[in-house]
Simulated assay, not measured.
Amino acid sequence: MATTIDGGRPASDSTRTGLAQADLFGGERHGIAPRAAWQGVASPKRRHTPAAPNPEGAARLLDAHDDYRVLRRLKPRPVDSAYRRVPGQGIALLVDVETTGLDHRQHEVIEIGMVAFAHDAEGRIGPVVGVLGMLHEPKGEISAEITRLTGITAEMVTGQAIDMSAVRALVEPADLVIAHNAKFDRAFCERLDDSFRHKAWACSVAEVPWRDIGFEGAKLGYLVHGCGLFHNGHRAVDDCHALLEVLARDAAGATPFSHLLRSSGRTRVRVWAERAPFEMKDVLKARGYRWSGGDDGRPKAWWTEIDEDDFRAEVRFLEREVYMREVELRRDVLTAYERYRAV
């Protein structure tokens, strides 16, 4: 039998649902009590005080449903101004720069973001101990494309300059500098100040096995969303805060930062397959080798990076599968101090 309201007029399903359900944020729809709505009885006249909104309760309700997934705004961790370094703890520094272009030899930094944090030897992340975000007015122009990518305009940077003493205050105590594409950021940072040049660097794109720990890609925005968060992307200090949360998340029983810390402590070898036969290019590509065109001061040759302990096995592979003879290969030994450094 159809439920009726307003003196016998049939109620639609949507009307019944709307009247009978409490509001998702804690209040009742239209101020009509669910029981009164179903019985066709007008609510008694009384002062109605709506319940205080409860966004987190609503988010949890949606998260529990298979058809929804909620993203929460990333809230930066506060700086522990009372922090004092203790034995066994290290300091890692997340760095991100926004620039006028991709070539560190001709383009300039227009923004730098940095977040320093403490950690233990197992890769457990402790308190944030320093944060810096600064704009810088370049000598050249900021193109419309750079503004589209970063949100930074010429008006925003007019008269702005990076305080290098503040930068050095965070760089000098750091044991490890981390960037989400260290090959790019290290080159610009070293041009910005020599304090970056003598530090160990790690790359959170290349040195974390993202696919193995449940992520399908390594772009920062994707990783942040995969952690159930969203943030103001492509602003330097915001990206550093976001990267910290991604590195701190438990994934397959370990944090991504613990993978990164172990990787940064290993010695790697860059193997150069110089003068490899052209017809072997597909074999090399399948092995993971990449081509260097020689325009950056490095050899014009195929190359790969491997752990130091795997070098002899790699030589044997090249001798049997590529050169068909014994060879003396060029190799560059790389620790975290040399890795990602620009030529």
Rank of each mutant, 00 (worst) to 15 (best):
339 R>W: 04
320 R>V: 02
47 R>K: 14
266 R>L: 10
185 D>R: 01
109 V>N: 00
319 E>T: 01
236 A>P: 00
190 E>F: 03
126 G>I: 13
293 G>W: 10
243 L>I: 07
239 D>I: 05
238 D>T: 08
130 G>H: 14
76 P>M: 01
195 S>W: 03
176 L>E: 07
221 G>S: 12
43 S>V: 12
105 R>G: 12
153 T>S: 15
20 A>F: 10
286 A>K: 14
268 R>L: 11
233 G>Y: 06
290 R>Y: 10
328 E>P: 01
287 R>A: 08
179 A>V: 04
180 H>K: 06
191 R>N: 15
8 G>F: 01
188 F>L: 09
293 G>Q: 09
212 D>C: 04
126 G>D: 13
53 P>V: 13
59 A>P: 02
181 N>L: 03
225 H>S: 09
111 E>H: 01
212 D>T: 01
288 G>D: 09
195 S>A: 15
74 L>G: 04
200 A>Q: 10
140 G>N: 12
247 L>Q: 02
322 V>R: 00
22 A>E: 08
109 V>W: 00
95 V>A: 03
291 W>V: 08
164 M>H: 12
226 G>A: 08
330 R>M: 10
333 V>G: 01
227 C>Y: 05
85 R>E: 15
29 R>V: 06
262 R>Q: 12
91 I>V: 15
121 A>C: 14
239 D>C: 07
113 G>H: 02
19 L>H: 02
96 D>Q: 07
53 P>A: 11
36 A>Y: 08
115 V>R: 04
281 K>T: 14
253 G>W: 05
10 P>Y: 04
97 V>W: 00
57 G>Y: 09
66 D>S: 14
125 I>R: 08
30 H>S: 11
155 E>S: 14
219 K>R: 09
297 G>K: 13
261 L>Y: 01
80 D>E: 11
286 A>E: 04
109 V>G: 02
135 L>M: 15
214 G>S: 04
228 G>D: 05
145 E>D: 14
264 S>W: 02
113 G>V: 04
202 A>G: 07
190 E>A: 11
319 E>C: 01
218 A>N: 12
291 W>A: 07
10 P>F: 03
304 T>R: 11
55 P>D: 04
42 A>M: 03
192 L>Q: 13
213 I>Q: 03
266 R>T: 10
268 R>M: 10
168 R>L: 06
10 P>Q: 05
288 G>T: 07
68 Y>G: 08
174 A>V: 10
97 V>E: 00
123 G>Y: 09
325 R>E: 12
92 A>I: 06
61 L>P: 05
197 R>V: 08
111 E>Y: 08
302 W>V: 01
211 R>G: 04
215 F>I: 04
265 G>W: 05
47 R>L: 15
213 I>C: 03
285 K>V: 13
265 G>R: 13
140 G>R: 15
148 R>M: 13
24 L>A: 15
98 E>T: 02
174 A>D: 06
342 A>I: 06
